[in-house]
């Protein structure tokens, strides 16, 4: 039991570490693509409502995430990515 918990804790730690890395890279791409300041980009920031992205910006941003993480984001799933946090969750899931 104790053994299992420690495994879970370790996994959680790795996950948090990976998640932090994804968050940093999502922020970096967002700053580059949308020309916003780093401090403006929070996990809760909405790309369209808070960071000034229009529909074309979102398409380009999603392509930049695809390039950054080497993943494919199908059009029908783009709607899941509304905030920086959504992007981190989505990308984490994709990377397994």
């Amino acid at each position: 039991m104790g053994y299992q918990v420690s495994i879970e804790e370790t996994k959680g730690g790795i996950f948090r570490g990976m998640s932090q890395d994804i968050l940093n890279r999502v922020k970096k791409v967002t700053v580059e693509e949308l020309g916003v300041k780093e401090e403006e980009v929070q996990e809760t920031s909405s790309f369209t409502e808070d960071l000034g992205a229009d529909s074309l910006d979102v398409v380009e941003l999603v392509m930049a995430f695809e390039d950054e993480f080497g993943i494919d984001i199908p059009d029908e799933e783009v709607g899941e990515i509304k905030t920086v946090g959504d992007a981190v969750t989505y990308i984490s899931k994709k990377l397994g």
Partner: peptide, 8 residues
Amino acid sequence: GPGKVSPF
């Protein structure tokens, strides 16, 4: 591929 062409 065509999916990588910029919307701009």
